[in-house]
């Protein structure tokens, strides 16, 4: 039997534009999701430890194949404040999803068919990054959204005290600079698609801060810590600049 109640349903909204379907691996330690986006340039990794749920009960390993497109439509009703509960029996062809809107007390129940998802499991190697920089998540989202209005990709440059996001396109160029207090092993410069950064930054509501782990010519990591877990987005670099 499996039962988990989660109070940050907005997490679903943060990943729905990257992946349409995913297996949710349910274990006694918690729920994990790891999936590549359709264009194979990004990987989403989410870990929610059992302690972040009230309650959490999982007496055997279970993989629930869930359509995030459908789940988003269900969760969208109540917004970021919704409480989401997942329940499954021993034969998980279907699972129950219970959505509770805290503001109105309204409870909605669904029986959802588990999907058979052909999903490749990717091993993510341990990486030592040249720069690991933590900045306010709202500022990061503001910068990404603002620059993306006119431009397509962004060059990240980080020095001892500042991280600079600069971008250029047909209409001209723009840049944003933020102070940080993080350690760097040296200055770093790399280019990343703004469209993806805007997608990653939809996780802003989950955490006050976001951590950018950067190195040249390896996937960049954008990480949001959530209560008892994390949402990590890896993005393949542009090479041969």
């Amino acid at each position: 039997l499996f039962h988990a109640r989660f109070e940050q349903a907005g997490l679903v909204d943060a990943i729905k534009d990257l992946i349409q379907d995913s297996d949710f691996h349910c274990r006694d330690s918690g729920i994990a999701l790891r999936n590549m986006d359709n264009s194979q340039v990004a990987v989403v990794v989410i870990l929610l430890e059992a302690g972040g749920f009230l309650p959490y009960h999982c007496d055997r390993r279970l993989n629930l194949g869930i359509s995030l497109t459908s789940l988003t439509k269900i969760v969208h009703y109540a917004g970021d404040e919704a409480t989401l509960a997942l329940k499954a029996n021993d034969n998980p062809d279907t699972f129950n999803l219970v959505l509770e809107c805290l503001q109105t007390g309204c409870i909605i129940k669904y029986d959802i068919k588990s999907r058979d998802i052909d999903q490749e499991h990717l091993e993510i190697p341990k990486t030592d990054y040249a720069a690991t920089i933590t900045i306010p998540s709202a500022e990061f989202q503001r910068i990404c959204r603002n620059l993306s209005q006119l431009l397509e990709s962004v060059a990240n440059e980080a020095s001892e005290e500042r991280i600079k996001f600069s971008s250029s396109g047909d209409i001209g160029s723009g840049s944003a600079t933020l102070r940080h207090n993080s350690d760097l092993t040296g200055p770093i410069a790399l280019t990343i698609s703004l469209k993806y950064l805007v997608n990653f930054s939809k996780a802003t509501a989950l955490s006050y801060s976001v951590t950018l782990s950067l190195s040249s010519e390896v996937p960049q990591l954008v990480e949001y810590k959530v209560e008892s877990g994390f949402a990590r987005f890896y993005f393949a670099p542009q090479i041969g600049e």
């Binding site: 990004a42 499991h121 890896y234 993005f235 393949a236 041969g240």
Partner: peptide, 14 residues
């Protein structure tokens, strides 16, 4: 301008 790589060039599938 660089070329966008894919994530499978860095992370191995199993």
């Amino acid at each position: 301008e660089g070329t966008q790589s894919t994530i499978t060039q860095f992370f191995e599938g199993s």
